[in-house]
Design a protein around this nucleic acid. Structure first.
Lengths: 218, 218
DNA sequence: GTCAAATTTTTTGTATACAAGAACGGATTT
DNA sequence: AAATCCGTTCTTGTATACAAAAAATTTGAC
């Protein structure tokens, strides 16, 4: 259960930003939001503070808060950090993972495969996130796990764009297979490198992401 | 200049926690803090929200906020993440660093050495932080840099404990030298591994940190 | 005397009222 | 006609007042 109204509102505003209701650069007016959610300015301000700290919006002193979608450069940077963090997770997990967790990962990837064959993009998306999140947990480092989940969550809407590309889902499942094989073999460095490649945005992936962004902006 | 009163208060409370005025588990009473800082509860609450998001304090719904110092396990986990992040920085910096930045790093490490020889623990501490922060900037990834600075800041009080050990300062300077040599040689993997070792808390370092913590708790 | 229930009290969460600073517009001057 | 200065208005930041929920204390019963 959520703690208080301000938290619910923060999630709601975040959703409104991510689904494009609020565009980049828009000012988030406290009084407008207050009447929109039928609350006073106080919980709105608390919610905005949460979003400011998460980096989703920007506050200019005495000016207000503005939506701040990451530009191409920052996006690439965030994906690079995600790739490196996941590489670390794979390397650590390779030596710390339990047998049950390994088979669980296999099960999840099989569900990814099934969703791919069923052309179920949403199902693939959810199982894919679960696959990565399960791996984070197997690092045996709860702090690392939380940091990864935080960034994963932040990048979520942009990863969603990527899965639309033809053949990407099948490729993703195959890469998961290879990563699992490396982990099972206990080859942490290999698993890490593969996962880094799996997440990194470069080459063709980069151009596809850019054009997806441009298309989404229209 | 700081933005508003709430930000100043957040920094002040953080300082009070880090220097031990507020101990682990203490409840941060809103009204007490309000009269302590001669403001109303509103800016206090905003400040506390910042601290909650930064993980320094914990909020229990309808109960209040409590100081939450990390325990030994979480501390080790945080240092592990820091070590891995810095390893990434070193690897990336090895291929992206500029010549001027490299010589700047050398200069900073020379200041570390001078501070060590002068038995100036505070000077060494400051230059050491600067050395690492300069390296973060040379990854060419502003997002990664910010994340590293965030975690560095969080671990700051605990790193301070470590420098008290006999011989640690000199060892640190020598390790910096080796890391710089690896970066100059363009060997990113080597530089990364060395920096990971440099930051990792394990073996003798672990026992020393634990006893320092116990001593600080008394 | 002890345990439990109810009331009181304390504290958080929300609403509203107030103050200070910034943007906007109009008027006056060059 | 353009630019600048002053005033109005709008918005943020802070204070206070109010409500609801949880904790603590007191009172009553067994």
């Amino acid at each position: 259960m959520e703690r208080k109204r301000a938290d619910l509102i923060a999630d709601a505003i975040e959703e409104l930003i991510l689904d494009g209701t609020f565009d980049d650069g828009d000012r988030l007016d406290e009084v407008q939001l207050a009447e929109r959610f039928n609350v006073s300015r106080t919980p709105i301000r608390e919610a905005l503070q949460r979003l400011i700290l998460s980096g989703l919006v920007e506050q200019l002193p005495r000016r207000g808060v503005f939506v701040r979608q990451p530009g191409p450069v920052e996006l690439i940077e965030m994906f690079e950090v995600m790739a490196e963090l996941e590489a670390v997770c794979a390397r650590l997990a390779a030596s710390r993972i339990s047998d049950t967790a390994l088979s669980e990962l296999r099960t999840i990837n099989e569900r990814c495969r099934a969703a791919t064959e069923a052309q179920d993009a949403d199902g693939n998306y959810d199982q894919n996130d679960l696959f990565h999140a399960t791996l984070y947990a197997q690092t045996g480092n709860a702090f690392l796990e939380q940091e990864c989940l935080r960034l994963q969550r932040r990048l979520r809407p942009f990863r969603r764009l990527q899965l639309r590309w033809r053949g990407r889902m099948a490729q993703s499942v195959a890469e998961h297979d290879a990563i699992l094989a490396a982990i099972e073999a206990g080859d942490g460095d290999q698993a890490g490198n593969m996962l880094r490649q799996h997440v990194t945005v470069q080459g063709e992936k980069f151009h596809r992401l850019m054009s997806s962004l441009k298309a989404a902006a229209e």
